[in-house]
Design a protein around this nucleic acid. Structure first.
Length: 495
RNA sequence: GGCGCUAUCGUCUAGGGGACUAGGACGGGGCCCUCUCAAGGCCCAAACACGGGUUCGAAUCCCGUUAGCGCUACCA
């Protein structure tokens, strides 16, 4: 097939069948991991099907929406590597269409003016609750005669527009839950247009989804109870509803809806904790979705290839930070040092460490398989650049206490032996040979020489093999540090 | 209260009437490797919420119970 023919067929296919999905966050807070996962599912679905991913900011709640939040959401998506093909559109810009739709419904007898004030409504609600039941609007304004309506209009009374909810079954075949059914009679005649003429969420969403020709609505299952209202709106407006796919919530470790008190919940938090976008995508994709087999580490291409609505779980999922960090560690270990340098450099800058143009790759290479976040990685690199940055941890402390005077004695022997090594031989293998020689001639176990060096250089008892550590730190810096530490603990035991 | 959704190891999940002695992964424990740790390899503990059906046979289908969650605004 020629290129031209290929493109033509592709365009044709897109016109006819390609799905259009949207991610529609409201800018009333940060980009939450739940929202991020919804965005990811939409994106994966669109990519898998060769469809279009639309980004729409739902800013109709003017009191709570801010530009700063919009910025954060956009940045979060960009950092995460979740793209969109159209938008961002701002719902606030379609107020005229929303209003026209409401008025069309009103003219068609599918909605009615409600002159009840907030106070009256609140009183009714309070009464209903006191009686032990739930509040449902009693349609008193629906029963107003044309003359009564005219009189109120003439008096300049404010009104909202309420949707007249038909008492019929409203059901749909949810792509993740299967058939879900509601009775219209159980639902309220909800407000679709505020008294100031602005649209309420359910109307705005339906109006926009129709206008944007959305074919699949993939969103959190906290919207299940909104869906029958929206389907009723589609019917009243004369449009076929899209396919709905309600994805499960993400919970905190206590099984409650994820919130601030669970710690990090915004994607920005994970960014700052040194989580890689690719790891985050992979982890989020597996939260509530499964490719159907045992694979855990999946590239974007594999995710896109395998993604389907059928693989989405019905049950809410608990966000497990430990597994995220494990996965991030897998990504870090598998990445070449060259791809990690930029992130490490940025962290070093934040920590106030100046690498002075030094090649960070060897240090990164030495510690990356032991690091689960970029933050950890950068801290370890910083210590290797300048061992005086190291802090003595409890295990390092314990080792010093246990070894007593031999701690500094062994350190000094190691330093002296290493000093004999020509700088051209300051490589892991010769270093190891020297240290083995020291241990042998002093009648010590290799660990008795290695561990003090490790503690002197890193402050702890855990690191890459000591010979590699020495090689990475560099001859001059390492020798100086070893002697400094030996001297410090000599004077301490002498005093 | 009403309406709706959900229920497999601590957590993420596989499972679609017989292949289930319920598999994998994280986390936990142990062993190997080893100068320590990580990685890797091997091993262990750990689950079908409960009760009724349907069926020759139920983790799987149906009903109920219980529990959790969501919605019930002139919020989204």
């Amino acid at each position: 097939m020629s290129h031209l023919a290929f493109h033509l067929s592709r365009i044709r296919r897109n016109l006819m069948t390609a799905p259009r999905v949207r991610f529609a966050p409201s800018p009333t807070g940060y980009l939450h991991v739940g929202g991020a996962r919804t965005a990811l599912f939409n994106w994966l679905f669109a990519r898998h099907a060769g469809g279009t991913h639309v980004l729409r900011i739902e800013d109709t709640d003017r009191d709570r929406s801010t530009e700063a939040h919009t910025r954060v959401i956009l940045d979060g998506l960009t950092w995460l590597g979740i793209g969109w093909d159209e938008g961002p559109f701002f719902q606030g810009e379609y107020a005229a269409r929303h209003r026209a739709d409401a008025e069309r419904l009103l003219a068609g007898g599918k909605a009615y003016r409600c002159f009840c004030t907030r106070e009256e409504l609140e009183a009714q609600r309070a009464r209903a609750e006191a009686a032990g039941g739930g509040f449902r609007y009693d349609r008193r304004c629906y029963r107003l005669t044309p003359a009564e309506i005219d009189a109120r209009l003439a008096a300049g009374l404010a009104f909202t527009i309420r949707f007249l909810l038909p008492d019929e079954e409203i059901a749909w075949d949810d792509a993740v839950h299967g058939r879900i059914s509601f009775q219209g009679g159980d639902l309220d005649d909800f407000v679709i247009l505020r008294s100031d003429g602005s649209a309420i969420y359910n109307l705005a969403v339906v109006s926009d989804d129709i206008a944007m020709r959305i074919t699949h609505v993939i969103r959190g299952d906290d919207h299940i109870s909104n869906t029958p209202k929206q389907i009723a709106l589609y019917r009243a407006l004369g449009h076929a509803p899209p396919v709905f796919a309600h994805v499960p919530m993400i919970l905190g470790t206590d099984g409650k809806k994820l919130s601030k008190r669970h710690g990090a919940t915004a994607v920005g938090d994970y960014r700052h904790e040194g989580i890689l976008p690719a790891a985050m995508r992979n982890f989020l994709a597996l939260l509530g979705w499964s490719p159907g087999d045992d694979r855990e580490i999946l590239s974007d291409a594999e995710l896109i290839e395998r993604f389907s609505l059928e693989g989405i779980q019905k049950k809410a999922a608990v966000f497990d930070t430990a597994k995220l960090e494990w996965m991030n560690g897998q990504y870090i270990s598998a990445m070449p040092a060259s791809e990690l340098t930029e992130g490490v450099r940025r962290e070093l800058g934040r920590m106030g460490v100046n690498p002075d143009g030094r090649d960070l790759a060897p240090a990164i290479e030495a510690v990356k398989s032991r690091s689960r976040t970029i933050l950890q990685l950068a801290e370890r690199v910083a210590v290797r650049l300048d061992p005086s940055r190291s802090a003595l941890d409890p295990k390092g402390q314990a080792l010093i206490g246990k070894m007593g005077p031999s701690f500094s004695a062994n350190l000094r022997h190691a330093a002296d032996a290493l000093d004999a090594l020509p700088s051209g031989d300051w490589r892991p293998e010769p270093i190891l040979a020297r240290l083995q020689h020291v241990a042998e001639s002093d009648g010590l176990k290799l660990g008795d020489v290695m561990q003090p060096v490790r503690v002197a250089l890193t402050g702890g008892t855990v690191s890459e093999p000591v010979n590699e550590l020495l090689a990475v730190v560099g001859r001059d810096t390492a020798l100086r540090r070893l002697r400094e530490v030996a001297a410090r603990f000599d004077s301490r035991s002498a005093g």
